[in-house]
């Protein structure tokens, strides 16, 4: 044990590092989620697109969780930025509120479990609900969402969306596939962290 005494207060330098990490990983999350979600342009894969998003973003999120020292603040900011960006792209104001709530919950998971695998795993599963939540307006305000989509998609795609909105099972499927992607992605991320990042000393 070292004899260094600390005041218990975290340095403002680490706060700056955390904030920079939030900016960088938020940019990466947005880009990766956008690329993975483009699978959803194929009508048959709309439900599975959340699985792809969670799977692809698991590794960066695990690295992000292990690098930040203030999980509550950082997770809230990351999810909040994603939510606000989605508002800018026409996805209703509710997604930003959902983003902040999910960010707080995932931050609490990390705070309670102290950045252990279980903490990262639960936080990852929580954040995986964020891309799934983007489709909620299809069920909560079907008319407006289909009117918005009809200006950007072809008739066959709109018909498929209309068919999906008739039952709540696809909505449950979206969340289940998202969580499943986060679970599988979590195990892949743990393997990659051990194989690559811990070996070169990026994370402890």
């Amino acid at each position: 044990m070292s004899n260094i005494r600390t005041t218990g207060k975290k340095s403002s330098n680490t706060l700056v590092r955390d904030l920079v990490n939030v900016g960088i990983f938020a940019a990466l999350y947005v880009v990766l989620a956008g690329i993975a979600a483009s699978v959803g342009f194929i009508p048959a894969f709309i439900i599975v697109s959340t699985f792809m998003v969670s799977l692809v973003t698991s590794v960066p999120l695990f690295l992000f969780f292990s690098k930040v020292e203030r999980p509550l603040l950082c997770c809230t900011l990351l999810c909040g930025f994603f939510g606000v960006l989605m508002v800018f792209t026409g996805h209703g104001i509710s997604i930003s509120a959902i983003g902040i709530v999910l960010g707080i919950v995932s931050g609490l998971c990390l705070k309670v479990f102290h950045k252990s695998f279980m903490g990262c795993f639960l936080a990852n599963v929580t954040i995986s609900f964020l891309p799934s939540s983007m489709m909620i307006p299809l069920w909560s305000s079907t008319e407006e969402y289909l009117a918005y989509c009809s200006s950007v998609c072809d008739a066959a795609y709109i018909a498929h969306l209309n068919e999906l909105s008739s039952s709540y099972w696809p909505l449950i499927g979206l969340f289940v596939f998202g969580a499943l992607g986060a679970v599988i992605g979590g195990f892949i991320a743990r393997r990659m962290m051990k194989k690559h990042f811990e070996r070169i000393g990026l994370v402890r």
Partner: peptide, 14 residues
């Protein structure tokens, strides 16, 4: 600043 700093990093990082 806790919101401004990550926002600037994010925008400039794309």
């Amino acid at each position: 600043n806790k919101v401004t700093i990550p926002l600037i990093v994010m925008i400039r990082f794309f």
